[in-house]
Design a protein around this nucleic acid. Sequence first.
DNA 1: TGCTTTATAGTTTTT
DNA 2: CTATAAAGCA
Length: 676
Amino acid sequence: MAGFRLFDLNPEQDKAVRTIEGPLLILAGAGSGKTRVIIARTSYMLAQGVAPESILAVTFTNKAANEMRQRLSGMIEPERAKKVTMCTFHALCVRVLRQDIERLGYKKTFSIYDQGDQLGLIKKIITRTAARDEKLDPNVAKNLISKAKNSGWSEPRPGDEETLAAAVFARYQQELKTLNAVDFDDLLLLTVKLLNEHPDVRERWWRRFRYIMVDEFQDTNRLQLDLVSLLAKSPEHLPDQVPNVAVVGDDDQSIYGWRGAEVSNILEFEAHFSNPTVIKLEQNYRSTNIILGTANSLIKNNPRRRPKSLWSAQEGGEKVRIIGMQDDKQEAEFIVEEIQRRQTLEKLKWEDFAVLFRMNAQARLLEQNFRALKIPYRVIGGKSFFDRREIKDVLAYAACLLNPDDDVSLLRIINVPARGISDTTVEKATEWSIINRFSVFEAMKQEEFLNTLPSRTQNAIREFHNFLDEFETKLLEPLANQPAVLRSLVENSGYMKDLQRTCKTPDEWLNRETGIRDLLNSFEEYSGRTEKGLREFLDEMMLRQEQENEDDENNQGVSLITLHASKGLEFPIVYLVGVEEGIIPHDRSKVEGTGDEERRLLYVGITRAQKNLTLSFCRNRMKFGSAMHCMPSSFLKELDPELLDQQDVSEILTKPVTHESAADRFSAMRALLEGI
DNA sequence: TGCTTTATAGTTTTT
DNA sequence: CTATAAAGCA
C-alpha cells in the first residue's frame, strides 16, 4: 500500500490521491495536473479495494468524461474501468430519471428537448399568451426560464404572476409535462426533486455511489451542488456518515457565472461539506514562471478568492509582450504576419499557435488575414452549430416513435415531406388537443376531432398515424432490429426523396444524405456494441450537442478561439487580442457588476500560454461599421511590469529593438496606462 | 409556398 | 457592418 506509486506525483497531488475518505476540496490551479489526479485517485481507490461500481466521477462536458474514461482504461484493466461511472451531470440525471420519473408524474418515455425544441415551444406559447401590445423576446424568455430553473424554482415565484414572462414560464412548464418532455434544466431540477421527495430512491443511489468526484466544481450551479449533496450525504433516516466527496476546481477560472455557475460553491465549500481536507495544487506543468507571474499579478486583485500562487519549475523564457496597435486591422495583419514568420524561422507547427479573443466577431478580421496568406487555421466554437436540419428531422421521427405525446417532434415532421396535413389542420389539431387535454397525436386519432375536417384531410391524417403506429409496433417487438426499423422508417416516409428535391445543389444533397447515413450507421454500430436501444441512443444524441470540431486531420492549423472556449487548452505560443477597456473587461460587466469574472477570463487566457505570450490592444477599432476610439484595458496596469515588454507596433515596424528605445517605449507606455 | 425586403440588434456556451 | 428574423410580396 505504501508502495502504491504508479504515478509520478508531487506531494500535494499524492496527498489528494490518497485522501479518499471524507470531503475533499482540491484547488487545482491552471495546468496543475488535475485530470491526472482524478485518474490516479480512481486507480488508487480501486487498489484499496473500493468496488468500481461505487465510484462516480461527474463532469460538465462529454469531452471531459470521454477523456477521463479513456485515460482510466489505459491505466487499469478496461473491464474494471468500464464499471466506474464517468459521465456528465446531465447523463447521470437521465439515468436516474429513466428509472423513477414516474414518481413525479411523467412517463418513463419522456423526451429530452434541446435549445431548439425549447425555443420553438416558447415561441408558440408567447404568441398564444401575449396581448397585442406586449412583446417578449423568446430568447430572453428562454434565458429567464433557465435561470429560474437553475436557482431551483420549478415555477415562477409567488408575486410574479402578472408579468408576461412569468405567465409564459408557468405555461411552458405545464406544457412540457403534458408533452411528456423535459428540457436540459429539468434534467437537473427533476432529479433533485426526485431525490428530495423520495427517500427510498435517494437511499438507493446513495448506496450505489459511495465515492463521488466532481470535476470543474467552480462551474457548478445551485442545482448541481444540491444534486451532489443529495447523492453524497447520508439520507436523514440513516445513521450519519461522512460523505466521500472530492471536488476539483479552481475559483480563479470561474468564468461561467453568467449562465448560473456559483463561485460560492467552491469559495464556501466548508459551508456545504464540513471539515473538508483542502489541498492546493499550485505547481504548474504548463507555462514559464514569467507567464505565471503575470497571471498571478493580475488575479491577486480579485477580492473574493482562495489565495493561490502558481509556480513552475521552468525558469527563464521570454517576457510577456504588450503591443499597442493603431487599429484592429493592423492588429490582425501584424499578428498573422508574425505567426507566418515565426512558423518558418522557429520551425514551429501551425498548431503551436493560438489567437484568443473575447468575442467571436473578432475572429473575422483574423480569418481574412490568415486566408490571404494561405495559413491553415481552425475556428474553435463559434457557429457551425448542432443545427443540422436533416439530423434533427430524423431524430424527431425517432422521438415520435418513442414518445407519441411529443408534440414538438411530431409537428416538426408531420408534414415533412408534404403529406396533405396543412398548417391550418395542424393549428386546429393543436387547439383541439389543448382544449381536450390530448397530445396532438392522440387528438388526431379521435373521431370527434377528425369529423370536423374535410375527408381528404381525414384520410391524410389516418394514413400518417397508421404509418407511425406500424413502425412503433415494429420497434417495440422483442428482438426487433431497431436500426433496421429506423432505417426503413426514414426510407418509407419519403423523407429522403423530399430532401433531395429541396436541395439546390448536388453537393448539398450529398452532404445532407451523408449526415443521415452517418447517423443511421452510428445507431447500428451503437446497437451492436452496447445492446442498448433507440431510447438510449436518442438520449445520448440529445445530450451530445457539442461541436464536432476536434482534431480531425483536415481541421488543423492556427487555433482561433474565444477566451471562454480556451479553458482547459494550452498552446506554446498565444496571442491575446483586443485587450481593451470595453472588450476585456466587457462594457456590460460594468453594469452587471461582474468585473471579477472578466479578470478571471483574462487570467484564463494568460494561463493558456506555455512559452510565449503576446497581448495586444488597439487605439481605434471598427464597431458596428464605424471607427471607435478605444483605451487599453485597465487590467494591463495590474500586470507585474517586471515581467512585461511593452511596445508600440509602429516602432517594431520601423526600427530594430535597442535597449534605449525599449526603455523609452516602456516609460511612454506606462504614462499611457497610468492615464486611464 | 417560397422568395425578397426591411427591421433590428449587436458577449461569453454546454448540456 | 452584417447576421438574423419577421414581414411583405408574387
